[in-house]
């Protein structure tokens, strides 16, 4: 950084000097070059390239492909909005939407408050706080695929399975876990909450350090207990962070793929088929070459929905978060 600054600095006074003489500064390519424009561009290029190649170009390709019929081997044909119609009329579409909403709802119900409670409790602890945060963060460090395979063993539905054995000690079960249409989705949410809570805990812990201690002292003087302090001091102070983590979680869970794909492949009987898994199935479910048009169409529909949802959410909560 120092090198860039030193190369740019000498150019600045002379530009200023020129503009001082001419009264109205004129921006010409020469002044742009002299002002270090080339250097800026040079340093910008890798970023532009990376974003262009790996972010913007795929997005543009997705939009184009959603209007085409292609198997990626033969030339593509334009089909208008037929892919979108096909997805809309697919009998599995409402199933996938319902399952995704169910997953997101369950994850919000359990996965949202747990990290907050954990963070508040951990911030109250005076000794060895590091160990607790490390323990909470540990699941995040385990590679997700490894975690799922591990839990798959725990979820063994026979009475010899890890969870069923433990529950058997207190005369519960055996439960079918992933092997039942009713149990499968809650089982996925349980693992997902375990795997992802740590990251949110860290965010809350960081946010909690920003809460002014005078507020707690003032609340104590007013005779508030710990619950009232949390309700009247902690939560209002954290509301900005809380709102952001909530929208991030909703967007994240709406795109859940890993758990249903690795645990159940969407089964049993489509009970855990999510929107992203459906996109995957459109693209790669048929060995004869996928329906990439329908896959990209559904991707765009999901992206569009989430964009609109985020806008509405941000509008609706703006006054609350800045009050």
């Amino acid at each position: 950084m120092a090198v860039i600054d030193s190369s740019r600095e000498p150019a600045l006074p002379s530009t200023r000097g020129l503009s001082g003489v001419q009264a109205v500064p004129r921006r010409t390519p020469i002044t742009w070059v002299r002002g270090g424009g080339l250097t800026t561009l040079l340093f910008l290029l890798p970023l532009l390239f990376v974003f262009g190649a790996f972010s913007w170009y795929p997005i543009v390709r997705t939009v184009i492909m959603s209007l085409q019929h292609t198997n990626l081997v033969q030339p593509a044909t334009w089909v208008g909005f037929r892919n979108f119609e096909q997805v809309w009329h697919d009998p599995l579409f409402p199933v996938a939407v319902k399952n995704t909403a169910y997953f997101a709802g369950l994850a919000l119900l359990f996965g949202y408050p747990i990290p907050l409670v954990a963070a508040v409790l951990m911030s109250e602890v005076r000794k060895r706080r590091g160990i607790y945060s490390a323990l909470a963060y540990l699941p995040v460090v385990i590679p997700p695929v490894v975690a799922v395979l591990l839990w798959k063993v725990f979820y063994d539905a026979s009475s010899l399975g890890a969870f069923n054995t433990v529950l058997g000690w207190v005369h519960l079960g055996p439960y079918p876990w992933l092997q039942s249409q009713g149990w499968a989705m809650p089982s996925l949410v349980l693992e997902s909450t375990w795997a992802n809570a740590g990251a949110t805990v860290i965010i809350y812990l960081a946010a909690l350090t920003g809460v002014q201690t005078e507020l707690y002292e003032a609340a104590s003087v007013d005779g508030a207990g710990i619950l009232r302090k949390v309700w009247h001091v902690t939560l209002p102070q954290l509301r900005g962070v809380l709102l952001v983590t909530m929208i991030l979680q909703i967007i994240g869970t709406a795109q859940v793929f890993l758990e249903p794909y690795l645990f159940t492949s969407g089964g049993p009987a489509n009970a855990t088929l999510t929107v992203l898994l459906m996109i995957f199935n459109y693209a790669f479910g048929n060995s004869l070459g996928g329906n990439y048009g329908a896959a990209t169409a559904l991707s765009l529909m999901l992206a569009g929905f989430l964009a609109v949802f985020s806008l509405v959410y941000l509008r609706a909560t703006r006054s609350w978060s800045t009050r």
């Binding site: 198997n71 990626l72 081997v73 995957f280 693209a283 790669f284 479910g285 048929n286 060995s287 004869l288 070459g289 996928g290 990439y292």
Partner: peptide
């Protein structure tokens, strides 16, 4: 699934 992906 893997065949379709590799083919494409």
């Amino acid at each position: 699934p893997t065949f379709a992906a590799k083919l494409a």
